[in-house]
């Protein structure tokens, strides 16, 4: 009963992960299919990748998406870190309830509503729709995710560390940059990464808030998907999945390494004493 796996456990893990990964695996495999027909395997080929690189519309959309994702994730990280700090360190102030409501609400708000409401506001203030509006929209919902990630990291670390800095003569502003920020850095990086991929993935909000000339990659994929499955889209998807998976895996393996080293050193210290 201890930690051994029963056959049932092993079977449910295998089937579960098969379910999670098979569709993506098939998508990747068929991006290398010679034939245009999705169901017929006609031999290995990279021609769809070549074709994709010829598709100017797709490349433009990809470029726009990267620009939006990079800009919005940087802004969202700054704003979200501030918001996380406010929620876990600033105690009570007027309008705190409204503030935390506005942080949590976008996380559960259906995307269609967020998109619609932002669009209506951009129209109301007569802001031309395009790169700027999509970026503003992405900053707004991404910063809430960053805030939650940063807040949970702040909640997890000993507050007296910051008090100790102040006790030793460091004013609050400097304490944030010299003590707090280095400690929560992993959460801030994770928040940035999360914002970046959220922006990279977003279809619904971008569809509402974008304008001519700023079509994002998910929108492009969506409009082609509605016309049917094509190996070219499979190729684009494979590249996107590959990029994100590599980024996330690298980031988490690095953190994991550091954690393991740290734990080993801690055990060593206790053993030596």
């Amino acid at each position: 009963m201890r930690q051994g796996l029963t056959w049932f456990n092993i079977a449910s893990l295998l089937l579960g992960f098969l379910f999670l990964y098979l569709p993506i695996a098939l998508l990747i495999i068929y991006s290398f299919n010679e034939s245009r027909l999705v169901t017929v395997w006609a031999g290995f080929s990279t021609k769809w990748y070549a074709e994709m690189l010829q598709n100017q519309g797709l490349l433009n959309a990809g470029w726009v998406t990267l620009k939006v994702a990079f800009t919005s994730s940087c802004f969202a990280t700054v704003l979200g870190t501030m918001a996380g700090l406010i929620m876990s360190r600033f105690g009570s102030f007027h309008g705190r309830t409204l503030f935390s409501g506005m942080i949590y609400a976008p996380l559960v708000m259906p995307e269609v509503i967020t998109g619609l409401s932002l669009l209506l506001m951009f129209v109301a203030v007569a802001l031309d729709r395009g790169f700027v509006t999509v970026t503003l929209a992405h900053i707004t919902f991404s910063m809430c995710y960053v805030a939650v990630v940063v807040q949970s990291r702040l909640a997890g670390f000993d507050r007296s560390i910051e008090e100790a800095a102040m006790d030793l003569g460091c004013p609050p502003g400097r304490t944030f940059f010299q003590i707090t920020l280095p400690i929560i850095a992993p959460a801030v990086v994770a928040g940035w990464l999360l914002s970046f991929t959220l922006s990279l993935d977003d279809l619904v909000i971008a569809s509402f808030t974008t304008g001519p000339g700023a079509t994002t990659l998910p929108m492009k994929i969506y409009s082609q998907v509605r016309l049917g499955v094509t190996p070219e889209i499979n190729a684009v998807c494979t590249i996107l999945v590959g990029l994100v998976a590599t980024g996330v895996l690298t980031a988490s393996l690095i953190t994991r390494r550091q954690e393991m080293r740290r734990e080993a050193e801690e055990r060593q210290a206790i053993a030596n004493s």
Binding site: F17, L20, Y21, P23, I24, L26, L27, Y30, V38, T39, T197, L200, D201, L203, P218, I221, Y222, V225, V229, I233, C237, L240, V241, V244, A245, V248, L249, S252
Partner: peptide, 21 residues
Amino acid sequence: MLVILPFWTSFLIRVYAWIGI
């Protein structure tokens, strides 16, 4: 990691993958 990874990959792509299936 195996559970979290799909969460990071595009929602649209994961839905799209099912069309072909």
